[in-house]
Amino acid sequence: MGLLTLLRKLKRSDKEARLLILGLDNSGKTSCLRKLADEDISQTTPTQGFNIKTVMSSGFKLNVWDIGGQKAIRPYWQNYFESTDGLVYVIDSSDQKRLQETSVELNQLLEEEKLSGVPIMVLANKQDLLNALSAKQIAEELGLHSIRDRTWQIQACSAKTGEGLQQGMEWLVNTLG
């Protein structure tokens, strides 16, 4: 990749959109991204910094930044807010214990000035697991109905099976394009 590539992905361009993938550690951000790029997800390890991928969808170029979600590095999410066109927030639908935690983080993001008005796609991931909450339940738990200042969409998906990811991308491309 190199530093030059990082700079190129900072460029603001009409033909490209910049997506940020955020969420708690272990929610499945990197796996979702890899699955979208048709890569093997079995070797995924906790992201210590960030991953960048360019994904083409319906002729539209998406520069996707997948940012590490461990608590210690969550304060640095702000590094990446500038010029973000779309936000993807990934949730581990089976981790009921951390629902409040992820809700708090999401609420904080919604209050960020640099992200004001940016469309959000909530990925209710890990639907392949038996105890996964449905998208509707996740929407309730997160209180998504109180988001009135921007468009949002919730998509049930599984990075393991790939289910739901394409639809999610389609919505994003439609919304951003």
Partner: peptide
Amino acid sequence: LYQALSGHELPLTN
């Protein structure tokens, strides 16, 4: 290799 230094919390640039 003389030393590997981990003081930074995120990727290094230059």
